[in-house]
Nucleic acid binder design. Structure first.
Lengths: 163, 163
DNA sequence: CTAGAATGCTTGCGATGTCAACTATATTAG
DNA sequence: CTAATATAGTTGACATCGCAAGCATTCTAG
């Protein structure tokens, strides 16, 4: 049998190298950023992510489903994450008058403050662990390249097949 | 109170933009790659990652702790992941003669084959979802930049503080 | 108005992964 | 040799998250 599939296929090893670095970098960075956020503010990286999105949203509130899509969590994941933020008093549920199905997640005053506090150290951590490793040009190029990657399901290309 | 912390601090929004794209891209890519790997081969992305590492290791075996460090999983995570691969018959435990503490994880013949099979579709998926979005030069530049990011604990910069 | 489909959200369950604690072996200091 | 420490690995308790299923509400056809 072929025992060389993994290195004879066009560009396979090189492709994997970049991708594997991507995976490693993500794992290492999220672990460290999470640890710091956790110890200093009691926040998960996902918590922070959601708080930031709310912070920048009009009226500092969003439909739960929209948060989910934005931070790429499942609807159930958002429900549970927001449960925690609500218990902590940083976010509250707000009913929607025009559509009884939707429940807004709204940043409270405490949540707004928390978000600003957390940002102060988190942005520094981010700078140290991420941004400072690149020149401004590189940084911009990196952001642009990352922006080309798929964000959601193309969905067609992987369903019906079973080769 | 300051309600502008998040946008007045030097470069904060821009930094976050790149980082947030990184997070989103990771989430979307791993989800799609995992789904395909799962449906076509019954493998997790982590499973595949470990199999590949073993595949390329001398004698196709490694100490469990070394796998853990390589793929950035915790030791317990590796134990559990390898449990699954062992149950599937793709990996087996091999005692180490010179040190009774260590147990090698060794790729079986079935595991080697599985790995090659999975690679064939996975490399295609990777190409489609990742590599094809970049020119070879960009691809190389991306890999190089990702390689600059921290891989493990610097550990000093985040312990003793509590500002 | 009513039936059926679509949408927003939540819940049960399982999978994955971490941390702390523990066992066993190896190494080092006295 | 013995005690103290470090290392490899496993296990139990727990957190996070996705999927499938379910409920309520809204929209769309007839």
């Amino acid at each position: 049998m072929s025992s060389q599939v993994l290195s004879t296929q066009a560009s396979s090893r090189a492709d994997q190298a970049a991708w594997l670095r991507f995976l490693r970098a993500h794992s290492a960075l999220t672990r460290q950023l999470s640890a710091r956020l956790e110890s200093r503010h009691g926040l998960t990286l996902s918590d922070y992510d959601v708080l930031i999105q709310l912070y920048h949203a009009p009226e500092r509130r969003m439909r739960r489903i929209d948060i989910a899509r934005l931070v790429l969590l499942s609807p159930s994941g958002i429900t549970r994450l927001l449960d925690g933020l609500e218990r902590a008093g940083w976010v509250e549920k707000v009913r929607c008058d025009s559509d009884a199905r939707v429940v807004y997640a709204a940043l409270t005053a405490a949540g707004t403050q928390k978000c600003e506090e957390a940002s102060e150290t988190h942005l520094g951590d981010l700078e140290e662990l991420f941004s400072s490793r690149f020149t401004p040009d590189e940084h911009e190029a990196l952001a642009e390249m990352l922006g080309r990657l798929p964000l959601a399901e193309t969905s067609e290309a992987c369903k019906g097949e079973d080769a």
